[in-house]
């Protein structure tokens, strides 16, 4: 059972097309398009949205993506009408990028809240991520090497901040686990690898950065412009930190299943 997704757009073609695109990356996730009015015009239809919500009921919750303003209002109205018991969350995210990230997260088994967060993380970096991950000193990201570094292992120094001086408690948070992985696939970090990384990480209970950007943000990862041979420096904190770094490691080493 996974989280299901409803896509509300003013255009039937946009809703259908966005679902078609996201299904490429998340074949097992139920995504229901609700685009256009019930008589085929541009606009949004409460009836369409409500029947989409009904179709999507019965999973582990529903995340709703919307396009322009009145689509949001129609989706909110549908929730007010439905008064359903299942968890239905509206994600404030760009419809295409948000849907792909949400779908990949759902495919990875993320909770309804994590799927929403994955969608919203595509707003760009920094997304509204909680608490203390913002203050990692930039110089920490230049650490070279490869493989997993458990917490406390030697890292590249950052003299101006002093966070990595031996024996001195760091002023900024040190990740629980970090690692460096070289991209081996020809195309490097493009949309599909970014979606896989972001989607999988969104499902884990860990705060993860990849070369300084939010690892759960597909668009953040794509802004890295990392080609073949680039090294991804991954830092993770939280209960699933080790799994998070191992997850990225596995994907990168397998070339994301690409040549």
């Amino acid at each position: 059972m996974t989280v299901r997704i409803v896509v509300v757009s003013h255009s039937e073609k946009i809703a259908d097309g966005a679902v078609e695109l996201a299904a490429q990356m998340a074949p097992d996730v139920m995504m229901v398009p609700a685009g256009g009015t019930s008589d085929g015009r541009i606009g949004t239809s409460l009836e369409k949205v409500m029947s989409a919500l009904e179709l999507a009921a019965g999973g582990d919750g529903v995340v709703v993506l919307t396009d322009l303003g009145s689509a949001v209002m129609t989706a909110e109205s549908a929730l007010e009408f439905a008064e359903g018991s299942a968890t239905v969350l509206l994600a404030d995210a760009p419809i295409v990028e948000g849907l792909v990230a949400a779908a990949v997260a759902a495919q990875g088994g993320a909770s309804v809240h994590a799927v929403k967060r994955a969608a919203e993380a595509t707003h760009g970096y920094p997304a509204s991520r909680p608490k203390d991950e913002q203050h990692v000193p930039p110089a920490a990201h230049v650490a070279a090497g490869s493989g997993l570094h458990p917490a406390g292992a030697a890292r590249a120094g950052t003299p101006q901040t002093g966070t990595a001086q031996p024996g001195v408690p760091p002023a900024a948070p040190v990740p629980d686990v970090s690692g460096d992985f070289e991209l081996v696939n020809l195309a490097g970090m493009h949309a599909r690898p970014a979606a896989k990384i972001a989607g999988g990480l969104a499902a884990l209970d860990a705060e993860v950065t990849v070369n300084g950007v939010d690892g759960a943000s597909m668009t953040g990862l794509m802004t890295l412009g990392a080609g073949k041979g680039s090294v991804l420096h991954v830092e993770a904190s939280g209960p699933d930190a080790e799994r998070a770094v191992a997850y990225v490691a596995g994907l990168v080493k397998a070339g994301f299943g690409e040549p």
Binding site: T37, S38, D39, R41, I42, G43, T44, S45, L46, E47, K48, G69, S70, M73, T74, E76, S77, E80, F81
Partner: peptide, 17 residues
Amino acid sequence: MALMSKVGGAAGPLYGT
């Protein structure tokens, strides 16, 4: 229900609500 389903623009959800 009828207004929200048939109006299409922002007025639909506003009057509907």
